[in-house]
């Protein structure tokens, strides 16, 4: 076990405890203090086979308010945790497809409700499957945990449009994690994805362009090491870890991945995710927009 933990420790992250290896998860499959949570873009993937004992969080159906554009409230979050058999003391370990993009998004939403006993399984589904580790189609059932979520904290990790506008006007640090083509206005959406309805292209003035995928090793979906990440975000882009930073993308999901990288792997003092992102900014009347590289 010690060797397994060291594997993360030696990578030079600010908060290595936020990440666990596939091997660590494999060794803890029967640990009742841990709940594995799978969250994917393709919601059929969990049903096709998942880690033994893992539960499913559907990012659209479980985390979003069904009527208005917002996240669920404390009542629905408590009900979700009841269904997942999670108590405030449970450590949840998220993993999923697409380099843990949705896993980080789910973790970010959990943090809005103060559930910070959370980890990401490095490499997600891709690494687990590449290593030939077991999958099952058996869906675990848990008795209701009686979870009582506090009110949602929309201040610590979340940024709203007017706050971002003031932040950008004050030359705050912004990271645009979309593709360079979206950033520069060559396209209104990421490659191979449809346009989700932005009327204007470009980026928020002053934002640095760091596509979210740069933080991962494409061959197994694992995160790059601390020094490699620092080279990208700090040395190359000049982002200062002791100053606040706001990340955004199209609807706030890719930027949740970067939120995790900046907050936990690089230890930036304050990181917020602007979930309104480009679908809000690019459609809003009168907001400033910058184009080009």
């Amino acid at each position: 076990m010690e060797a397994v933990l060291k594997e993360i420790d030696v990578r030079g992250y600010a908060h290595p405890e936020a990440l666990v290896t596939t091997e660590w998860v494999h060794q803890n499959l029967n640990n009742t203090a841990i709940r594995l949570i799978e969250s994917n873009e393709d919601t059929l993937l969990y049903a096709s086979g998942h880690l033994p004992g893992a539960v499913h969080v559907d990012w659209t159906a479980d985390l979003n308010d069904p009527i208005r554009r917002d996240y669920i409230g404390p009542e629905a979050f408590s009900a979700l945790m009841d269904r997942l058999g999670v108590t405030p003391e449970t450590t949840v370990v998220f993993y999923g497809d697409r380099n843990n993009w949705w896993a980080c998004y789910a973790m970010w939403v959990f943090e809005l409700f103060g559930h910070t006993r959370a980890r990401i399984m490095d490499g997600g589904r891709l690494k687990w499957q590449k290593e030939g580790r077991p999958l099952t189609r058996e869906v675990p059932r848990f008795t209701a945990s009686g979870y009582n979520a506090p009110g949602r904290d929309d201040h610590t990790n979340r940024a709203f449009r007017d706050e971002v506008l003031a932040f950008a006007s004050a030359h705050g640090q912004l990271v645009d994690v979309r593709s360079p083509e979206e950033y520069s206005d060559q396209r209104l959406h990421m490659a191979d994805y449809p346009n989700e309805g932005a009327l204007r292209g470009g980026h928020i003035p002053g934002a640095k362009s760091v596509p979210w995928g740069r933080a991962v090793n494409p061959e197994d979906g694992s995160f790059k090491s601390g020094p490699e990440l620092r080279r990208i975000y700090v040395e190359e882009q000049g982002l200062l870890p002791n100053r606040e930073v706001i990340a955004y993308c199209r609807i706030g999901e890719r930027s949740a991945h970067t939120w995790f990288v900046l907050k936990y792997l690089l230890g930036f003092d304050r990181v917020r995710n602007y979930d309104g992102s480009w679908t809000e900014w690019g459609n809003s009347v009168g907001l400033p927009i910058e184009k080009g590289q």
Partner: peptide, 13 residues
Amino acid sequence: RDISMGKGMGLMS
């Protein structure tokens, strides 16, 4: 309607 807009549009494509 249980799929994301992105996923739905890709499948419609």
